[in-house]
Computed example of a mutant assay.
Amino acid sequence: MAEIIEDVVNSSREESGYVVIDVRGHDEIQSTGKLNDVVVTLPLPYIAQGALSMDEEDFKEAFGFEKPRLDETLVFSCKAGIRSQQAGQLAKMAGYSNILDYMGGSNEWFS
């Protein structure tokens, strides 16, 4: 995960091809902080409600960042790996095929 985040930091989301998404709730992220400034927040309930199937404009208005393109690699993280795995399954159902799951989550990252 550190290498992926470093890649995004040193180039950009567009150049690296990675979108690192934290699926924890805003309250959880507030208590620990973000994994890194390049990590975007999209809580799992929004993904379950179809966020990744929204059109680009509505998505950006709702979540404050560009909707991931189907050719980008989505890297999901949560607290311990359960929700990030679910997010990956939901992303596949929304048409994404390049999906990574950071199983260690914020528990591992901040320890």
Score class of each variant (00 low, 15 high):
residue 45 P to S: 14
residue 63 F to I: 01
residue 35 L to R: 04
residue 108 E to K: 12
residue 105 G to T: 01
residue 57 E to F: 13
residue 43 P to A: 09
residue 71 D to M: 15
residue 46 Y to K: 08
residue 24 R to Y: 04
residue 33 G to I: 04
residue 4 I to D: 07
residue 43 P to N: 11
residue 90 L to E: 12
residue 79 K to G: 14
residue 104 G to S: 06
residue 54 M to S: 07
residue 62 A to F: 04
residue 20 V to W: 04
residue 111 S to C: 09
residue 67 K to G: 02
residue 52 L to Y: 03
residue 23 V to K: 05
residue 46 Y to I: 00
residue 68 P to N: 11
residue 96 Y to S: 06
residue 50 G to K: 08
residue 16 S to G: 06
residue 62 A to Y: 03
residue 107 N to F: 10
residue 56 E to D: 15
residue 51 A to C: 10
residue 37 D to S: 10
residue 44 L to I: 04
residue 11 S to E: 08
residue 33 G to T: 09
residue 9 V to W: 08
residue 15 E to L: 11
residue 60 K to Q: 13
residue 66 E to V: 05
residue 4 I to Q: 14
residue 71 D to I: 10
residue 110 F to I: 02
residue 82 I to G: 09
residue 80 A to N: 15
residue 107 N to P: 01
residue 86 Q to C: 08
residue 78 C to K: 02
residue 19 V to D: 06
residue 72 E to Y: 04
residue 12 S to L: 02
residue 98 N to K: 15
residue 33 G to C: 04
residue 21 I to R: 06
residue 31 S to Y: 02
residue 29 I to K: 08
residue 24 R to C: 04
residue 72 E to T: 12
residue 76 F to D: 15
residue 36 N to I: 01
residue 108 E to N: 11
residue 12 S to M: 02
residue 55 D to Y: 10
residue 2 A to Y: 01
residue 29 I to F: 09
residue 6 E to N: 09
residue 93 M to Y: 09
residue 39 V to W: 00
residue 66 E to N: 04
residue 19 V to G: 05
residue 32 T to S: 11
residue 75 V to A: 14
residue 109 W to N: 03
residue 75 V to S: 13
residue 20 V to N: 08
residue 3 E to W: 00
residue 37 D to N: 07
residue 68 P to V: 12
residue 79 K to M: 10
residue 93 M to A: 14
residue 79 K to E: 15
residue 27 D to T: 04
residue 49 Q to A: 13
residue 50 G to F: 12
residue 9 V to M: 13
residue 22 D to Q: 05
residue 102 Y to F: 10
residue 96 Y to M: 04
residue 17 G to S: 15
residue 67 K to D: 08
residue 1 M to A: 12
residue 17 G to P: 03
residue 89 Q to Y: 06
residue 24 R to W: 07
residue 36 N to G: 01
residue 64 G to F: 07
residue 82 I to C: 02
residue 48 A to V: 07
residue 98 N to W: 08
residue 24 R to K: 02
residue 20 V to G: 06
residue 78 C to G: 10
residue 89 Q to W: 03
residue 11 S to A: 14
residue 64 G to A: 14
residue 98 N to Q: 12
residue 66 E to L: 04
residue 15 E to H: 15
residue 57 E to P: 09
residue 36 N to A: 13
residue 101 D to C: 14
residue 8 V to Y: 05
residue 93 M to L: 13
residue 26 H to I: 00
residue 71 D to L: 14
residue 32 T to L: 15
residue 38 V to A: 10
residue 34 K to S: 05
residue 20 V to A: 06
residue 88 G to Y: 12
residue 24 R to T: 02
residue 52 L to T: 07
residue 45 P to H: 09
residue 42 L to I: 01
residue 89 Q to L: 14
residue 59 F to A: 09
residue 54 M to Y: 13
residue 104 G to I: 03
residue 56 E to V: 03
residue 45 P to K: 13
residue 16 S to V: 02
residue 80 A to L: 05
residue 4 I to Y: 14
residue 84 S to A: 13
residue 18 Y to T: 03
residue 75 V to Q: 14
residue 97 S to T: 11
residue 100 L to H: 10
residue 85 Q to D: 12
residue 20 V to R: 02
residue 70 L to T: 11
residue 57 E to K: 15
residue 11 S to L: 02
residue 88 G to E: 09
residue 52 L to I: 00
residue 65 F to L: 05
residue 46 Y to G: 15
residue 97 S to N: 10
residue 111 S to V: 08
residue 41 T to Y: 00
residue 79 K to Q: 15
residue 37 D to A: 04
residue 26 H to S: 10
